[in-house]
């Protein structure tokens, strides 16, 4: 297991280098003048442009720029945004918020998704099954910004159950509604995954054996079937966590959450390369780590997978 982990960590190095270089190249080799529009209505002064190019190493060839950038990253310096704020400080702050949002979304998704999937998988073709199938289809087919704004309007503005927007220090309660919105699509997929896997598992020979052992239905389902059916579900949840963090831009926008989604969105608009590359690099790392954790957990919950 230790050897496997080490090998996987080493494999992450080329992936990180490759993906960050691609992003860096894309952001900094975009056509157009990165200083355009930085100085209001008039063009920027030659001194400003020179200073700007010096600061971001824009006079060097691209690979050299990248190596210089990565050198700083390795020392923990993600550079400064165009407003002179260190990207690292801003990211640390915003990442905590997005992480909290992701945790809320994941918890919501896991609890409701697994629950709904189990109920419908046990009674295929029953009322609950049809209810779950139809409602998940509805959720999957509606874009997230529609779900977000509609729920915000009713649960937030009209009925006042949840706060309309999230406060600047992002308290957990404020994040409940945005978390549900963010997790809704994945929840629908998860419920369907759980449903089909459980109903397949219930037809296996070892479930027949469990019945033949005289075990009560609750134990047959809750221990013998679920332990098997949860393997793909946990895998899905792990991969999805990485995706949730990166995919929170729309939800963060609707609920005015100061997370990394809004940050990277603004960075792209401002052509603020340091912000975009820094944020995406962190996201790539988080995604790779989430994948690694999933694969390690996979070996723990499925004894047939060996990491030796």
């Amino acid at each position: 297991m230790g050897k496997y982990t080490l090998r996987r960590l080493l494999q992450m190095i080329p992936v990180v280098i490759g993906s960050t270089f691609l992003i860096y190249a894309m952001v900094f080799s975009l056509p157009g003048d990165p200083t355009a529009g930085k100085c209001g209505e008039r063009p920027c002064s030659p001194q400003y442009v020179a200073q700007f190019k010096e600061k971001y190493n824009l006079n060097d060839p691209l690979p050299v720029q990248y190596v210089k950038y990565m050198g700083n990253v390795l020392q923990g310096d993600l550079g400064e945004s165009q407003y002179g704020v260190p990207v690292r400080d801003e990211l640390a702050d915003r990442f905590t918020t997005t992480l909290k949002l992701g945790v809320v979304a994941l918890a919501f998704e896991a609890i409701i998704g697994i629950g709904a999937g189990v109920l419908s998988g046990l009674r295929r073709g029953g009322f609950i099954d049809n209810l779950v199938l139809v409602s998940t289809l509805v959720v999957i087919s509606i874009p997230i910004f529609v779900i977000g704004t509609v729920l915000q309007l009713y649960l937030g503005v009209k009925w006042g159950i949840f706060p309309v927007t999230v406060g600047s220090d992002a308290p957990w309660f404020d994040l409940l509604l945005p978390g549900m919105v963010l997790g809704s699509t994945s929840l629908a997929y998860l419920a369907r995954l759980m449903r089909s896997d459980l109903s397949d598992t219930m037809r296996t020979d070892y479930i027949r054996t469990a019945h033949a052992k005289g075990l009560p239905q609750g134990r047959v389902v809750g221990v013998h079937a679920l332990r098997n059916s949860l393997i793909p579900v946990i895998t899905f949840l792990g991969y999805d966590f990485g995706a949730l963090l990166g995919g929170a831009i729309i939800t963060e926008g609707i609920f005015n959450i100061h997370g990394i989604g809004g940050y990277v969105y603004r960075g792209i608009g401002d052509r603020d390369g340091m912000v975009v590359v820094g944020t995406v690099t962190v996201l790539v790392l988080v995604y790779l780590l989430a994948n690694l954790i999933v694969d390690l957990v996979y070996g723990l919950i499925d004894p047939r997978i060996s990491h030796d």
């Binding site: 296996t204 020979d205 070892y206 027949r208 054996t209 469990a210 019945h211 033949a212 052992k213 005289g214 013998h224 332990r227 098997n228 393997i231 919950i301 499925d302 004894p303 047939r304």
Partner: peptide
């Protein structure tokens, strides 16, 4: 009765035993 009084052995032991326990 199932287990203590009447019990059963199945054809394919690999698929009849739970793989994760």
């Amino acid at each position: 009765i199932r287990g203590p009084e009447i019990s059963m052995i199945f054809q394919d032991a690999l698929s009849s035993l739970n793989p994760v326990f």
